[in-house]
Amino acid sequence: MSEPGPRPTAAALALAFLVIALASFGGGLSAWAQRVLVEQRRWLEEDEFLSALTLCRLMPGPNQVNMAVYVGARFRGLVGALASVVGLVLVPSAILLGLGAAYFRYRHLPLLDAGLRGAVAAAAAMTLAMGVKVGTPLVRDRGAIALAVAAFVGVHVLRLPLVGVVAVLGPVGILWAWPRAAAEERS
């Protein structure tokens, strides 16, 4: 099925997660991860990225740190996981500490505040746009639409816990995908 792309080096992994982290001022980290890992670097197929994203949310730990572990381990084992996590958190934590130190000295950050309000609105747009992009291929498939709508309604409208929603819809999704997955295996 999916052909294996070129296997990234540990340095390339660290750099990619640094780019994801730095681009995500205002938020929108997973949208940036999708853009960099799937669209630009083409390390992951869309389906793999999406299922990994849910795995990362189910497991304990910050979601995008888990994504760094997933992608790093996938291509370069332990070294890759370490490189990806360091790429994701090292520079951002230094920046954050600098901003935090400024905050403790000057009490507030008015200019940053105003600029951030705009950036945050755009970061929300990043996540919405990602939803539209990853959702578009599903539109032809009624089963996929039903799964996506059910997940949305469960979490957003009914406010059910994420783990419960995935525990129910995950197996349904696997049953739905099984015939084609098994058929591909045989061919």
């Binding site: 299922s51 996540t127 084609r180």
Partner: peptide, 30 residues
Amino acid sequence: PWHTAIERGLAPVTVGLVFATALTITRAAD
């Protein structure tokens, strides 16, 4: 084949979750 089925089956669920997150973020941001 389980691996393929789990990946394919979770992908549409994640799409729904992404929209839920996006709306929550939008409400908090704007």
